[in-house]
């Protein structure tokens, strides 16, 4: 999967499940999910399940921090080299 495909999968997951739209303009890649009220404690669990089940990226407890998970850009930086081939 190319970086662009991964990014678009992540965006689609957030847009459909938390912003309830397919309008790409509704989410910028730098937007903090927390500050914008997009994700709460249940949402973050679903996001982690998505990373693990759909993309095969396992997330260790110590990695569940905003620097890794709290925007599309942060997510990309965190997972891009970890997706199994």
């Amino acid at each position: 999967m190319s970086d662009m495909e991964i990014r678009s999968q992540l965006r689609a997951f957030i847009l459909e499940n938390y912003l309830f739209t397919d309008d790409q303009n509704a989410l910028s890649d730098t937007q903090s999910f927390l500050k914008a009220g997009i994700l709460d404690s249940m949402g973050i669990l679903e996001l982690i399940a998505f990373l693990e089940e759909e993309l095969g990226v396992m997330v260790a407890p110590a990695e569940m921090v905003p620097e890794n998970l709290d925007s599309i850009d942060n997510l990309m930086a965190f997972i891009v080299n970890r997706i199994p081939a």
Partner: peptide, 8 residues
């Protein structure tokens, strides 16, 4: 503190 990031 928020449960969004349980490890924190």
């Amino acid at each position: 503190f928020q449960m969004v990031f349980p490890q924190q």
